[in-house]
Write a protein that binds this DNA or RNA. Structure first.
Length: 502
RNA sequence: GGUCGGGUGGCCGAGCGGUUAGGCAGGGCUCUGCAAAAGCUCGUACGGCGGUUCGAAUCCGCUCCCGACCUCCA
């Protein structure tokens, strides 16, 4: 097991030891959402993946600047004939100001991410707030000979870029420029203006119906579709930073073009490590609105969808995501979610049991002590191996078994040193809550549940009395009634505990 | 068609040359007034066909399926 953090760098297609540019600091940029409609659940998976990476880097002691943009301008709508901006089109549709649309869906996005307990990025820049910087970069690219203007639009000269060996166009996505020539479809917009089919726009002249528009040296228009990330990552993280992340589907053309733009303007690519999160599938297939194979975060939470038998809480979904490595596809099925729900509860319940072990710590360390420490070391090692949450989770589950055994007296508590118990509490908590980013949704022992806690304490006391008197009728009545109210009572060695839910 | 990535026990999902992943479900046992919870325990899987090797789920070849990207998309 490696003790150093290793990450899978998409650019080199191999795992590499992670070494930040500035000791103790990490700059990370993740391509954020385009806010022209409600967040896609797949989006959430990507951001949850990077949320865990962010959390783990901080856990390791790094000071992280996490930049995740909001794209509120610049994406062409492919299925429309006009080639107009997605935001503008949506605005027309709903009779709203473009920025109103942007605001609405940004809010919605934030709400969902909050439900998933994702930490906010350090900076969340918007493309529309960086038009000047984008114009500057376009000019730089032109000045360096890699951009050309045609009818008010400016294109990136991929052929010249490739010929100069300035960068290696296609390196990230494994594409060759010759193949791009052959494959490029001839019905692309403004094809006739481009010198080469694989060239892409870095500034677009606005058509008359285009609402979002800004003045520039070339025309009244809007920036190209990949420029914002090049510009904003450079502005907030510098010309070279540590990690650039995003969904797998952004590798080409988005990230490839980003590299080209950065290289053309400042001579080198933006970052040292490219990390890509894989896609979320449902029932083995890509989520697709057209064939009905889709579910929104809200539908998933409420259960109002033909694809799920019931609603699953955000934390259950988050746990479900943890069970798969971020670089693998994740297949969402009702059955898998049900399993995740149980697993999640087990993980949280063990944490509560752990808290109760506190007073029983013995003085001498034994085999159990060693096993616990080994498992904690292993869990960390798994995370160091490219943020392997499924493996780390496996170790934490093994810890949960040990904790339960200790609680039930199946393992000798006096073999666990006070030091190890302390470490176990800190470590278990750190993994479950700080790194995995889960929250306790099970109701009991919550921070803001003092009233319910008090009531339950009383009810359990009453039932314990009944049981002491072998008044089974009363004790079972209490238990059944609680069950009806969705509260489960569990009799253990040290008394009765309770949880909300089945 | 091109480029990548996959096919693992009933389900999900790690592993990627020799060792029990883990979760869920199922069987058995322990504990318990009963139940639940919890613990212990059982199941012996790697798409197919060849090859390399003392040894392959793990490497190589062929083949069959699946997915992603190639066009806005996380």
């Amino acid at each position: 097991m490696e003790n150093e953090l290793r990450v899978y760098n998409s650019l080199h297609r191999k795992k590499e030891i992670f070494k930040p540019i500035h000791e103790g600091h990490v700059g990370m940029y993740v391509c954020g959402p385009t806010v022209y409609s409600d967040v896609h659940l797949g989006n959430c998976r990507t951001f949850v993946s990077f949320d865990i990476i962010y959390r783990y880097l901080m856990y390791l002691g790094y000071k992280v600047r996490y930049v995740r943009n909001i794209t509120d301008v610049g994406h062409l709508e492919n299925d429309a004939d006009t080639g107009e901006d997605k935001i503008a089109k949506r605005a027309r549709l709903e009779q709203l100001e473009p920025m109103e649309v942007v605001q609405k869906y940004s809010n919605g996005f934030h709400d969902i991410m909050r439900m998933f307990n994702a930490l906010e990025p350090s900076i969340e820049p918007r493309a529309t707030g960086h038009i000047l910087e984008q114009i500057e970069m376009v000019q730089e690219i032109i000045d360096n000979g890699y951009g050309y203007e045609k009818n008010g639009s400016v294109y990136f000269d991929t052929l010249k870029y490739a010929e100069d060996k300035k960068g290696n166009y296609g390196e990230l996505s494994g594409r060759k420029i010759e193949e791009l020539i052959a494959e490029s479809r001839d019905d692309l917009k403004k094809q006739d203006e481009k010198k080469h089919p694989s060239d892409f726009a870095i500034w677009m002249k606005a058509s008359p119906e285009h609402i979002l528009r800004w003045n520039s040296p070339w025309s009244v228009g809007f920036p190209g579709w990949h420029l914002e990330c090049s510009v904003m990552s450079t502005k907030y993280l510098g010309e070279t930073f540590d990690i650039h992340g995003g969904g797998n589907d952004l590798k080409f053309p988005h990230h490839e073009n980003e590299i080209a733009q950065n290289t053309a303007s400042c001579g080198h690519g933006p970052c040292n490590y490219w990390l890509h999160a894989n896609m979320l599938l449902m029932n083995g297939r890509k989520m697709s609105k057209s064939d009905g194979n889709t579910i929104s975060p809200e539908e998933l939470f409420t259960g109002e969808s033909p694809h799920v038998s019931k609603g699953y809480s955000p934390m259950v979904v988050r746990f479900f995501m943890l069970q798969t490595h971020y670089s693998s596809t994740l297949d969402l099925t009702d059955e898998a979610l049900q399993a995740a729900e149980k697993g999640y509860r087990r993980l949280i319940e063990a944490n509560k049991s752990l808290a109760k072990l506190h007073n029983h710590a013995g003085p001498s360390a034994g085999k159990v002590d060693q096993d616990l420490n080994d498992l904690m070391d292993l869990a960390q090692a798994e995370m160091n191996d490219d943020f392997n949450t499924p493996k780390a989770l496996g170790r934490i589950f093994e810890l949960a078994s040990k904790i339960n055994s200790l609680k039930d007296g199946h393992l000798p508590m006096n073999e666990v040193s006070a030091e190890t118990l302390e470490r176990l509490e800190a470590s278990y908590h750190a993994f479950v809550f700080d790194i995995f980013g889960l929250k306790d949704e099970t109701g009991a022992s919550g921070d803001d549940n003092s009233v319910l806690d008090g009531v339950m304490e009383f009810i359990i006391e009453m039932r314990t009395e009944a049981r002491a008197n072998k008044d089974w009728a009363t004790s079972d009545k209490i238990r059944d009634k609680m069950k009806e109210l969705n509260i489960q009572l569990k009799d253990g060695k040290d008394g009765t505990s309770w949880t909300v839910g089945e």
